[in-house]
Amino acid sequence: MIDSRRDKYLHSIPGLPGVAGVLVSNERDLVFTSNRGEKTVGVFPFGREEKLEKVRVGGFPNGLAFDPSRNTLLAANVSKQDDPNPITVSMVETKKKFLTADIIVPGRTRWTVFDSKMDRFYVNVSKPPQIVAIESKDPYGITTSFEIPATGPHGLDIDSENRRLFCACDQGGLFTIDLQSGRVSRVSDLSGPPDVIFYNSRLHHLYVAIGEPGVIHVFDTDTMKLVQTVKTELGAHTIAYNPETDKVYAFTPASHRAAIYKDV
C-alpha cells in the first residue's frame, strides 16, 4: 500500500494468495482484490483491511470492474493451461458478499472496464480476439461483442465522454472502438506487448505500459499520436494511476520499487 499524498510506502496486506489485480471504488470507498491463488475476490473498506471478506468465484480471477450504483463487481477469470472447463466472468454482489452469476465467455479474459453511461461491462478476450459486453442490470449473458483484428487484446480503458474504448493488443497494436457505430480502428503501433493502460480524461492522455523493453507510451487521445515514451524498467508492465494528481506509478520488479511520474 502506498500513500499517494506523500508518495510513501506504508505496508503490505497479507492473506491475498496470488493477488493479480486491485481496484479502488472512490464512490463506495471500497477496495477489491483478485486472489488468483484461491479463486476468490477480496472486499474491504478503504484503510480497514482488517475487515477483509472474500467471495469464491468461478475461476482464477484477474481483471476487475465495478458498478457502484448496483454494488456489482465483475471478475474476469482465467484458467490453467489444458483445463477443459469453460472460462467465465463472475458477477459478485459486494454488499451482501455473494456470487450472483457466472457467465461463459469465448476464451481467456484480460482487462475489463465499466461503462456508467450504458450500464455495461466490457471485457477483453485474448483468443478469439474480441471485446464482449455484459449488461450490469441483467448480467446473465453476452449482449454484444467487437471483433479485434489483432492477437491478444490485453489493456482496456474507456473514454466515456467520446463514447469509445481503447484496447492495446499483445501483437503490438493500439485500437479504438467507437461504441456508437461499432467501428474498430487501429490507431498506432506499440514498441512491444502491452499490459495495463489508463486514460487520463482531464489531460486527454492514454498511458500504455510495456514490460519489454520497459516503457510507458503516452498518447494524445485527441490526435491519437504518440507524444512521449517514458523509460521504466525491463519487466515493468503493471502501472497504477491517480486521476486526482495526474501521477502514474510504475512497479519495477527487478529493483522492487514504485517509480512515480507526474504528467503535466
Rank of each mutant, 00 (worst) to 15 (best):
F219P: 07
F219R: 10
V113K: 06
A65F: 03
T33H: 06
H217M: 09
D159S: 12
I148V: 12
D159T: 11
A209F: 05
P193E: 11
G21L: 09
D82C: 09
D195E: 15
T143W: 03
V113L: 07
S160L: 10
G211D: 05
S25A: 13
K231G: 08
G58N: 15
F166G: 05
R56P: 00
F166R: 06
I148S: 04
N124K: 02
A133V: 03
K39T: 08
I177N: 03
D222R: 12
N26F: 09
R202S: 03
P14E: 14
V264Q: 12
P128R: 08
N26E: 12
E212M: 13
E233D: 06
M224V: 09
A209Q: 04
E49F: 14
V208Q: 01
G59F: 07
C169W: 03
N62F: 12
K39P: 06
S4H: 11
T109Q: 00
G21A: 15
S90I: 11
L23V: 09
L52Q: 05
T94I: 08
T88C: 08
E50Q: 12
T245K: 05
T100N: 02
G37H: 07
P61H: 07
D263M: 12
P129L: 05
F166I: 01
A133K: 04
A75G: 11
V123Q: 00
V184H: 07
I177S: 01
